Amino acid sequence: MRVVTLIDLTRTLDPADRDLLPEPLRTLAPVIAPNVDYAHPAGSGREQFASAMQCRVEDLPDGEGWGSELLTDFSTHLGTHVDAPLHYGSTCEGKPARTITDIALEELWCEAIVLDLRGRCAANTAISVDALESALAENGAPIPAGGAVLLRTGQERYSLADLEFFQYPGMSREGTLFLAERGAKVLGTDAAGWDLSFAVMARKFRASGDNSVLWDGHRAGREREVFIVQQMANLAALPPSGFRVAFFPIKIARASAAPARVVAFT
């Protein structure tokens, strides 16, 4: 029997990470980690449990209540998350764009390959089609039809405390369509975002007046339906090909995205 190894590709959601963000980027906190109010069984969980049971804390078995957490300031685009087509606009391929609960689990359980773009891309610069072609040739495996392409840009070098984490290589319309037209359905990255950062896109727009530079990587998903997965972790642990990945998001009605537990099966 073949032994399957599970590799977690998901960022841990730790409210302490919000404090790591450089001061100019604190507004990004809701897409990095939630606020969490922790109730420990030997702490405030005792009062909560006693209230629910309509008894005194002194009446509780072993003097303890429950463990419970209340999450707030929680974006659907938090941490490692799956974007549904609704995130890119109201229509996709000429039809109403699908929400996260419209996507079947079978579409998010697929074969995958990793494209190693280290040395082929640069911070605050769009990843070129030439770079994608070069990495694909080095990998040697074809893009699986209906499968996933995971981009390893080298962002694992940085922590959330580093400004460089937010100055990442991004994807363009041309790069996104290059992968989609070759059969990819799920597009993942270890970067904080799929496109260039908002600051870079805004600067390019101010310089050119051309609105096609605004979020063109995501908006390409309106032309060819894809599911974009951002803030992936641990891509260095994966082989180049020959594995499957489950990208299973939280089931949030009518949502444009949801945080996911992303796990590779190698």
Score class of each variant (00 low, 15 high):
residue 128 S to Y: 01
residue 129 V to Q: 07
residue 129 V to M: 07
residue 130 D to K: 13
residue 131 A to K: 07
residue 132 L to F: 01
residue 139 N to S: 13
residue 139 N to Q: 07
residue 140 G to E: 05
residue 142 P to M: 08
residue 144 P to K: 03
residue 146 G to L: 04
residue 148 A to F: 03
residue 149 V to S: 08
residue 151 L to Q: 11
residue 153 T to W: 06
residue 154 G to T: 08
residue 154 G to H: 05
residue 155 Q to D: 13
residue 156 E to L: 10
residue 156 E to N: 14
residue 158 Y to G: 06
residue 159 S to H: 05
residue 159 S to Y: 00
residue 159 S to R: 10
residue 162 D to G: 02
residue 165 F to M: 13
residue 166 F to P: 05
residue 167 Q to T: 12
residue 169 P to C: 02
residue 170 G to K: 00
residue 171 M to T: 04
residue 171 M to Y: 00
residue 171 M to P: 00
residue 172 S to K: 01
residue 173 R to S: 11
residue 177 L to F: 01
residue 178 F to Y: 06
residue 178 F to N: 00
residue 178 F to H: 02
residue 181 E to Q: 14
residue 182 R to F: 00
residue 183 G to T: 03
residue 184 A to F: 05
residue 184 A to W: 04
residue 184 A to M: 05
residue 186 V to W: 01
residue 186 V to Q: 00
residue 188 G to Y: 05
residue 189 T to H: 02
residue 193 G to R: 11
residue 194 W to D: 06
residue 194 W to C: 11
residue 194 W to I: 08
residue 196 L to V: 11
residue 196 L to P: 08
residue 196 L to R: 09
residue 199 A to D: 15
residue 201 M to Y: 03
residue 201 M to V: 06
residue 203 R to I: 05
residue 203 R to V: 06
residue 204 K to V: 04
residue 206 R to H: 12
residue 207 A to M: 03
residue 208 S to F: 04
residue 209 G to W: 03
residue 211 N to S: 09
residue 214 L to R: 12
residue 216 D to Q: 13
residue 217 G to S: 01
residue 218 H to N: 10
residue 218 H to I: 09
residue 220 A to C: 07
residue 222 R to A: 15
residue 223 E to M: 13
residue 223 E to Q: 15
residue 224 R to Q: 11
residue 225 E to Q: 14
residue 226 V to N: 09
residue 228 I to D: 11
residue 229 V to F: 04
residue 231 Q to C: 14
residue 231 Q to Y: 05
residue 231 Q to G: 08
residue 232 M to V: 11
residue 232 M to W: 08
residue 235 L to I: 10
residue 236 A to H: 12
residue 237 A to K: 15
residue 238 L to I: 10
residue 239 P to N: 11
residue 239 P to S: 14
residue 240 P to M: 07
residue 240 P to F: 07
residue 240 P to H: 07
residue 241 S to E: 08
residue 241 S to V: 07
residue 241 S to Q: 11
residue 241 S to N: 10
residue 242 G to W: 08
residue 242 G to P: 08
residue 243 F to E: 13
residue 243 F to V: 12
residue 243 F to Q: 12
residue 244 R to V: 12
residue 245 V to C: 15
residue 245 V to K: 13
